[in-house]
């Protein structure tokens, strides 16, 4: 009789533990999606395009680029007085000194006027990194 009570206690405890785990899965903080829907495009030296769709709260393009790393987007560059100078996108180098090429930034189809650190991000924007020769 005593062993049955202890067994019932053990089973009840397991059920409660399962309930707690369920409560944790339901109630825990989930990563917040951003409020702005933006698109990142990469056009490489062979004109192949890769597209990344993101939801972001980033204020500037560089924040979007950092968030896009989670989706496989990569970039490298160097810091300068004018901000980030992008040398590699998705592993492809476009160094003007060495390749005579550079990564041009287009915003909604128009040539970008700002660098990644200062290009504002608005809901619905499309940012295109295009490998450009010359």
């Amino acid at each position: 009789m005593k062993n049955k009570k202890i067994l019932a206690f053990a089973i009840a405890l397991v059920v409660v533990i399962a309930g707690f785990i369920g409560a944790w899965l339901i109630l825990r903080d989930k990563p917040q999606e951003g409020t702005k829907a933006v698109t990142l495009e990469v056009v490489d030296d062979k004109a192949a395009k890769t597209t990344y769709a993101l939801k972001t709260d980033a204020e500037f393009l560089r924040g979007v680029m950092d968030e896009a790393k989670a989706k496989g987007f990569t970039y490298e560059g160097s810091e300068s007085a004018y901000g980030l100078m992008i040398s590699h996108v998705n592993g492809l180098r476009a160094d003007y000194q060495q390749d005579g090429a550079y990564w041009a930034i287009y915003v909604n189809g128009a040539y970008g006027e700002y660098g990644a650190d200062s290009q504002p991000v608005a809901d619905g924007d499309t940012f295109t990194f295009e490998y450009t020769k010359g």
Binding site: I17, F20, I21, A23, W24, L27, R28, D29
Partner: peptide, 16 residues
């Protein structure tokens, strides 16, 4: 308080 408790459930399991 519920959110605070829920975030600590993994620690409660370790405690148990």
């Amino acid at each position: 308080a519920v959110a605070w408790w829920a975030s600590g459930i993994p620690f409660d399991l370790m405690h148990a």
